[in-house]
Write a protein that binds this DNA or RNA. Structure first.
Length: 843
DNA sequence: ACCGCCGGGTGCC
DNA sequence: ACCGCCGGGTGCC
């Protein structure tokens, strides 16, 4: 909404820096998504009329949806009443509709209905309505109702919504309300956490521990947990079970959450979620391309074989996030790589394939094209989403494109089925076509809200739902009492680095200058308004900890801090946006485009200060016109407001050597080189990753590596796909003379990136988000790793890096306990942010 | 009777 | 709808 505009313009900037996880930037999504903080204002009895004109039928106690019908020729205030299936039951009586229309259109409240009794009436039936909204809108809603002569009853708990399968208690006479049940109990963080752990750790179930031999060619190579996964997947595809929460009654099928019934048997869920936090399954596909470790080769073949043997000659669409071109084609199946400008737009070409590989980005781009996407014209036998969690934003074009694919058997591979809250699950559940959750209203009313408010039974529902469709394997999962995977140890060492006198002087002067500016913001009370600028200060300090050359124009660096944010001319606004974009592009390497989730190609910045690829954001604007909104903050988007990055200056000096500038070292580089040389002396065959967020730093490090005769390779987000594959294969190779060092940018590659050849990691600079570090470490500490993994973090003593570590530790502790609990209030979030800034700059 | 009352026609929004 | 509402027919006691 526009009301939040001023917030967005500053806060979206740090989300594009990827710092929101670290610096507790609150979720400030618009009202439509902000349903979690809704409270119940009260209830109201109304009537549904015109029943005999519609075919939709309901049961007593069944939930109904109220939907505005503004184009109704008889009454612009019309409100439709639909049953769970989406069939219209009738209309809300016009006097009441007149009161509801304004409230619903302005989104002041969400109105939900339940038909308490009289469901079989011929002409009209009662409907019990609940009004939900944000605390601050309560008065406005009550007011609007009052003006039309309606008054809400106190928020009784509506029976069918509050307990698992509970019924309305029918009194002998009059309307049947259940007595107000006790208030919902908010579970403690620990309780919630342990409940969620249980969601996934259910290996005792028969259908998940039963093993199945693979195809003959690979069967002998399967590990027990892989055989289990195979058996489970096959059973899921052939299962005749009703979907969760459905019961067979005498001659119909009954949904115990919504009390909806229908004669037609609800579709089985022929698929599920393979949730795997270490790529045990994800690796199956991706390791095809990194097939240097024997086990991975077979694991991946196994997966392909599974699809061929189980499904016969059918075509299967893989949604492939980390796109790879080199696919082994040893199994005599047709694999079509649907990617690049020469991709066939002919659906029948796709239909001829056994397997079609594509990316979310392509899928989303094609979805909007005139004439329709060929991918959406094929009826797939199977659709497999790799990195399924990337579709967790229900409003993203990618999600919409995925949800609209046709295909009966649907699989989701994801390491993190629930990223932050239950909310994230909806897209996946919807993708699996689980009735009635494909409609977000039923998901929200029956699962999400009960869970987040701690309504008794809510977690139980979620649990049984997840259990029925998910196979979960974690590093600690056990099969027959033995861990599914015994990984070598992982050790993290902190190596402190002391700056030289000279480095310290520069650092100190930049710090004092920044500190003075930030102090001024504090005294002016404009800290949050200058948040982006503050991040800029911190960025420079972080860079100075690494190498003085990373921080280019130090002396005049903060001149822009004094520019007032208001009253800018268009040219000034443009300049500011360009500056912000450059800061984003240089802050950490490989900033992602939120549309394609890949590295930014031709970056442009929106007026709301979000950075996207130019083609990506153009496509968004084109397909959503005339009211295109920013995918990240929902602010209005206009093509003419987009600002491109002026080309004259090289931002990414990826080859490092600033033309003839003489190479100098730094304390941190010295520390690294000392460690590398020692490692080469002690174990000449050991391979290591040198990781930094700054690609320019990696480029600088190339100099001493060459001087000391190291064979090294490099992987960062800016590299073309072919180069990346080459770099990885070359590094993973065990041949003599193959590189022993890989320069790796922190965020390069996806979960599937397999760098198990390395057993040492040198992290050159701490990341804002500890999870990003962990994910990076997991690229070598994963299936296939033969050695203990030692990670060395270089941290400059008495610097912003040390302060970052402190906050990281705090975050880690928080993350360990927090899950789906109530969101902190905006003021709490801001206070945390302010405290973190103070801690970072020693104020 | 510019009323009341009767009884038939009729029926969402 | 075994209702409400509408509008035409009708009109002392």
């Amino acid at each position: 909404g526009e009301r939040n505009y001023s917030c967005f313009s500053s806060s979206d900037f740090y989300s594009s820096l990827g710092l929101e996880d670290f610096l507790s930037v609150g979720d400030i999504s618009g009202t439509e998504e902000d349903t979690d903080s809704a409270i119940l204002y009260g209830t109201l009895r109304g009537s549904v009329v015109g029943l005999r004109y519609y075919t939709g039928i309901v049961n007593n106690n069944e939930m109904v949806a109220l939907q505005r019908d503004p184009n109704n020729p008889y009454d612009k205030n019309a409100v439709r009443v639909n049953n769970v299936n989406g069939d219209q039951v009738g209309h809300i009586k016009k006097e009441l509709a007149a009161a509801l229309a304004g409230i619903m259109d302005s989104k002041l409240a969400v109105v939900e209905g339940v038909v308490p009794y009289g469901a079989k009436n011929v002409f009209t039936m009662p409907v019990q309505m609940s009004f939900w909204g944000r605390e601050e809108n309560r008065e406005a809603v009550l007011d609007q109702l009052k003006r039309h002569g309606f008054k809400l009853s106190p928020p009784l708990k509506v029976g069918s919504e509050s307990r698992f399968g509970s019924k309305w208690i029918s009194g002998r006479a009059g309307p049947s309300y259940s007595a107000p049940v006790h208030a919902a109990v908010q579970l403690t963080t620990e309780q919630l956490k342990s409940e969620f752990d249980k969601l996934f750790e259910d290996l005792k179930e028969d259908d998940k521990t039963c093993e199945m031999e693979g195809a003959e060619t690979v069967g002998t190579l399967l590990l027990p947990h892989q055989k289990q996964a195979l058996a489970w997947m096959v059973s899921r595809e052939n299962s005749n079970d009703l979907p969760p929460f459905w019961e067979e009654r005498s001659d119909f099928y009954y949904n115990i959450l919504t009390n909806f019934a229908e004669k037609k048997r609800p579709e089985n869920i022929r698929g599920g979620i393979l949730a795997d936090d270490m790529g045990l399954v994800i690796i199956l596909i991706q390791s095809l391309n990194f097939c240097l470790c024997r086990m991975c080769v077979h694991v991946s073949y196994w997966f392909i074989i599974w699809f061929i043997l189980i499904c016969g000659k059918y075509y299967t669409l893989f949604c492939y996030d980390q796109f790879e071109q080199h696919i082994h084609q040893d199994f005599n199946v047709n694999i079509y790589v649907y990617y690049g400008s020469d991709r066939s737009k002919d659906p029948s070409v796709l239909s001829e394939q056994d397997i079609v590989l594509t990316t979310y980005n392509i899928l989303a781009t094609d979805y909007g094209i005139r004439g329709g996407s060929p991918l959406h014209k094929v009826k797939w036998l199977r659709i497999v989403l790799d990195e399924g969690h990337t579709i967790r934003n229900p409003n993203a074009q990618q999600t919409k494109a995925v949800l609209n694919l046709e295909g009966q058997r649907r699989w989701v591979l994801t390491g993190t089925p629930i990223q932050n809250s239950v909310k994230d699950l909806w897209s996946l559940i919807s993708f699996l076509k689980m009735k009635p959750f494909t409609d977000r209203e039923w998901w929200h009313r029956t699962i999400q809200r009960p869970v987040t408010t701690g309504t008794p039974g809510g977690l139980g529902r979620l649990q049984s739902l997840i259990r029925s469709i998910t196979l979960r394997r974690t590093k600690t999962s056990k099969v027959k009492g033995k861990p599914v995977l015994e990984l070598p140890e992982r050790k993290v060492l902190i190596q402190h680095v002391t700056l030289t006198e000279e480095e310290r002087q520069v650092y100190q002067s930049v710090k004092e200058e920044g500190k003075a500016a930030i102090s001024r913001f504090f005294s002016e009370g404009t800290v949050l308004a200058h948040y982006a600028d503050i991040l800029g200060v911190l960025l420079r300090l972080r860079q100075l900890c690494c190498h003085p050359h990373l921080c280019v124009n130090t002396s005049s660096s903060f001149s822009y801090l004094s520019v007032s944010a208001d009253n800018k001319t268009p040219e000034e606004l443009r300049e500011t946006l360009v500056k912000k974009m450059k800061l984003v592009l240089s802050s950490g390497s490989d900033e992602e485009c939120a549309v394609c989730l890949e590295s930014l190609t031709v970056p442009v910045i929106t007026r709301c200060a979000h950075v996207f690829c130019k083609p990506c954001i153009f496509e968004v604007i084109r397909s959503e016109q005339p009211n295109a909104k920013c995918p990240l903050c929902r602010n209005k988007l206009r093509v003419e407001h987009l600002v491109e990055c002026p080309p004259e200056e090289e931002i990414d000096s990826s080859n490092g050597k600033k033309s003839d500038q003489e190479w100098i070292s730094s304390s941190k580089v010295n520390a690294l080189m000392h460690a590398l040389i020692e490692l080469r002396r002690d174990s000449p065959n050991a391979k290591c990753l040198v990781v930094s967020q700054f690609t320019t730093f990696l480029s600088l490090i190339e100099n001493p590596l060459k001087e000391s005769g190291f064979a090294f390779t490099r992987l960062d987000g800016s590299m073309a796909q072919k180069k990346r594959v080459e770099a990885i294969q070359c590094f993973q190779s065990s041949q003599a003379g193959s590189p022993t060092v890989m320069l790796l940018s922190l965020k390069a590659g996806g979960v599937g990136l397999n760098l198990t050849a390395a057993s040492r990691v040198f992290l050159m600079d701490p990341a804002w988000n500890p999870a990003a570090e962990d994910q990076c470490f997991d690229r070598c500490h994963r299936l296939g790793q033969k050695h203990d993994v030692v990670i060395t973090k270089f941290i400059v003593k008495d610097s912003v890096e040390e302060n970052m570590m402190k906050i990281q530790n705090k975050k880690r502790k928080l993350a360990a306990g927090a899950f789906a609990t109530k969101k902190p209030s905006a003021s709490e979030v801001n206070q945390t942010k302010i405290n973190e800034i103070k801690a970072l700059i020693d104020l």
